[in-house]
Design a protein around this nucleic acid. Structure first.
Length: 572
RNA sequence: GUUCCCGUAGCUCAGGGGAUAGAGCAGUGGUUUCCUAAACCAUGCGCACAGGUUCGAAUCCUGUCGGGAACACCA
């Protein structure tokens, strides 16, 4: 499919060059020409605000607009061009071209609006990346939905995409998990033993304790926490993958932080940072205030990353006095590893609680002398869970904590609503927005919901084809010139999909596709009411054209739903 | 205290320096002989506040107020 915004931008550039050559406009370097989609009828299908050029053109904006129109090259898709308002150029696409796009959409099929912006370049999206200590909760799910949708959009834009899950299975938290399971196991054996405060309180460990007792009797009584940790970890990953799979999320690669210790990459990274003059050894960081020094119990030197050289406000610990790195060093090593794997684009979906952290990593990459420009962080804000209190009937916030055993899990949500509803609701917000996820509302509204509004458009198309099949009616020999204004309105909207994908990819804001999908559906539904196919009033040749039109509409809805990781049902 | 995110309709949120700021939900009233109601149609004087930049600001900058998050030799 042609992206008309780009075609028209090219025309404007060509026209400006011609106008300059002809002496109508002075010489100036032509800036990026951004074609807009007007909001109102009568303002054209596309528009360019020539006011943007007034500071170069030394003329009033309307005069510049006139110059551009005068030198515009001829094309097969433009019907009319006019200057309006303070200096807008409004472009009207000809109807024949629009109607022909129905066949173009049908010809492209399920991959419609697959573009080559990415040009086969390699992109990686890292998301979820929860350590295997418990079930996936809602906050992580948001990152998961954002990440997976981003990956789908990058694929549509023509990138070769890998989805990666980064995890840490060493560390203190995992030890706590192992110890917690051991306690649960010993409880099953009848020991009088309680969890400690730092232990994981979740019920799921009780089950695993029972399972272990069933498998091994009391023979694991003397086993160290490590064995319990490994058992729990295996279980957790099975669970996590299953939970994510339920909402159509699947990672291509699970990257273990520990592998970079085994391969020495972590130490190589430290060595390189040192080589480049960014590491020093000291008991306290250079910027340490007297208060910090006083409060600190440190007596042995640690290794510090001099990130202040790159704009940080204080240096960061890389290796603690005990020789163990903080999590920042492997994080830097991980990004070094990603760059070395040759990805052109690396998207990292993080929760807002990592807001400071990713900056340090960025400085680390810079300090290594690597190019950080391919790394993009999507920092999604928190999900505030609101539930209705059963006793008071009032809304109250639910604060989840995996360790304390309180969490709103993804599994719970799937059970209460549907995978599609979850995907849509977690997608349809800008990542920068703190969202209030009212569980009851999502459940309650699930019958009158944007999710089903969009899916129903697909269902309706399928319904027409079911009926047509029964009657043995086909769109063979359809004459698209018989389509009317309603259908044209839908085609115009459909042609925006390419821009919607490109824009979402450029800004790393996958929620835009959710809004586009809803807009497309809201153009569709009223048309569906008016534009019937299998109706006694509709002549056969018109019906054939309309049937072809609905074939294109069905493809469009399947496409946008798939881009959002949602199903495209044939019946409701 | 410092840094980051946010403040738009009753509620939940879109809004790309451009033309008259939009959607869903909730509310009210209406709409199907033939593919259709999980739909359609009608109904809304709302950009936290104050300055600034600009031909033009919800959008960019500064400040104030309000909400959230992050600021360990924790992960």
């Amino acid at each position: 499919m042609k992206q008309l915004t780009k075609e028209i931008a090219k025309l404007v550039v060509a026209s400006l060059e011609a106008a300059q050559k002809a002496g109508d406009l002075p010489e100036f370097e032509i800036p990026d020409i951004k074609i807009e989609l007007p909001k109102r009828e009568g303002q054209g299908d596309y528009a360019y605000p020539a006011m943007a050029l007034s500071r170069f053109g030394k003329k009033n904006p309307r005069a510049i607009a006139e110059d551009i129109v005068k030198h515009l090259p001829e094309t097969d898709f433009m019907a009319q061009v006019e200057v309006a308002g303070p200096g807008f150029i409004n472009f009207f696409v000809n109807e024949g071209y629009l109607k022909a796009q129905v066949d173009a959409i049908v010809a492209e099929g399920e991959d419609v609006f697959k573009m080559d912006i990415g040009d086969g370049k390699r992109a990686q999206v890292e998301f979820v990346s929860a350590n295997p200590t418990g079930p996936i909760h809602v906050g992580r799910t948001r990152g998961g939905v954002i990440g997976d949708t981003m990956a789908r959009l990058l694929e549509a834009a023509g990138y070769d995409v890998q989805r990666e899950y980064y995890f840490n299975n060493a560390g203190r938290q995992m030890q706590m998990l192992g110890e917690s399971l051991k306690v649960r196991y010993l409880q099953v054996l009848g020991d009088d033993i309680d969890l400690e405060e730092d232990h994981y309180q979740g019920e799921y460990l009780v089950e695993y304790g029972q399972e272990l007792a069933g498998l091994h009797g009391d023979s694991w009584r003397e086993k160290p926490w490590r064995d319990f940790k490994e058992f729990a970890e295996t279980k957790m990953f099975v669970w996590i993958k299953q939970s994510l799979g339920a909402i159509n999320i699947e990672h291509d690669n699970f990257f273990n932080e520990d592998s970079m210790f085994q391969s020495e990459e972590v130490w190589e990274t430290l060595h390189d940072l040192k080589e480049n003059g960014y590491i020093y050894e000291a008991v306290h960081r250079k910027q340490a205030s007297e208060e910090e020094i006083e409060k600190s119990k440190a007596t042995e030197p640690a290794q510090w990353f001099e990130s202040t050289k790159l704009g940080d406000k204080e240096d960061r610990v890389m290796v603690k006095a005990d020789g163990i790195p903080t999590y920042t060093l492997p994080d830097i090593a991980y990004h070094r590893n990603k760059i070395q794997r040759g990805f052109d684009v690396m998207v990292n979906v993080l929760g807002a609680d990592h807001g400071q952290q990713y900056k340090t990593v960025g400085w680390g990459v810079e300090a290594l002398g690597l190019d950080p420009s391919g790394i993009h962080v999507i920092l999604n804000q928190m999900v505030r869970m609101v539930v209705t209190d059963e006793e008071t009937g009032k809304k109250r916030e639910q604060k989840g904590s995996t360790r304390k055993g309180i969490y709103e899990t993804l599994d719970d949500l799937v059970e209460m609503t549907s995978p599609d509803a979850i995907r849509y609701h977690l997608l349809a917000y800008s990542p920068t927005t703190d969202i209030t996820f009212d569980v009851d509302e999502v459940v309650k509204q699930s019958n009158e919901n944007p999710v089903y509004y969009i899916q129903n458009a697909h269902v309706r198309c399928c319904g027409i084809f079911r009926e047509a099949d029964e009657r043995g009616f086909t769109d063979e020999g359809a004459d698209l010139s018989l389509l009317g204004d309603d259908e044209l309105a839908f085609i115009r909207k459909a042609l925006e999909l390419g821009d919607a994908i490109e824009y979402a990819v450029d800004t790393y804001e996958p929620h835009k596709i959710a809004f586009y999908a809803h807009e497309l559906a809201s153009v569709f539904h009223p048309i569906y009411d008016r534009v019937r196919v299998l109706h006694s009033d509709v002549p056969e040749d018109v019906a054939k054209a309309r049937l072809r039109f609905y074939a294109a509409a069905r493809i469009m809805f399947k496409r946008v739903l798939t881009l959002m990781g949602m199903s495209a049902p044939e019946r409701m």
